[in-house]
Amino acid sequence: MIDFWETVLAGGVRLAVPLGLAATGELLGERTGVLNLGVEGIMAMGAIGGVLGAASLGTTGGLMVGMLVGAAVGLLFSLLTVRLGADELICGFAVALGGSGLAIFLSRTAFDSAPDIVPFAAVEVPGLSSLPIVGPALFDQPWVIWLLPLAVVIVSLVFTRTRLGLALRSAGEGPDAARARGIDVDRHRIGASVAAGALAGLGGAVLCVGLVGEFSDTIIGGRGFVALALVIAARWRPGLLLPAVLGVGSLQALQLRVQATGWGGVPVELLQALPYLVTLLVLALGVGAAHAPRALGQLTKERGA
């Protein structure tokens, strides 16, 4: 029984990392007042960029390429919305649609047979890996899982401890006041969008290159949209994001595990829906818009004023 839960938790951690990286990026962007619904497309682009990069540059090189591709899409999105003043919701949908489409198109045309990618192997930390429950979940894993806590800690420290973080947050809470203080709100938002894109791209690349080793049409499978929901469930706080993504990741892992081993008469479809149901429930019970950055979603209105 312990074995079962250890496997589930270890799988949950692996599933949480791509999701969490994308959600951390989205959180960063939303705290500056930019709502990017295109995470799904950026993850897909990062994933295919990562796979293509990994084919020639190796696994770590693939991650870098995925990150750069994600950053480029983030830049494109922010130029359309922040600079040109196009509607952020519509552009977000366009990025989600076009990014996923382009990623699948590239995967069909770029290679005849899938490139040989060696995902990262698990690294066993001597001693720590034999701890019960958390041992296999944290200390017998590919090193890429540590990118998630690293990203969360960096974003959190930048927000709370630096002048830059203060400027970024002021762009999301009171852009007019920030402008009056001489802060270049647009530039901070564009910068944050690029960083957010890089994180989402990295998330996609970690999933396809670092953990799975291939790209398939359905591999992103709505993760980008789950990431959006998790940012809300975490009340836009980096510290709450970790437990949120770990929870959803573990539910997904549980679902996969039960599907593989069978578990009483519980219908598989119910288990598949479980992560989404729990997300919905948390959203319904947990928060109102009260915790949202005040300027979130106001981009178009700000422009019109």
């Binding site: 509607d87 519509i90 649609l97 076009g98």
Partner: peptide, 19 residues
């Protein structure tokens, strides 16, 4: 899937046009 990309470009271009 290239069709999705074309559609996305249409939509983005319209979003810019109607700002």
């Amino acid at each position: 899937e290239i069709v999705l990309v074309v559609q996305a470009v249409f939509v983005a271009a319209t979003a810019v046009a109607i700002r």
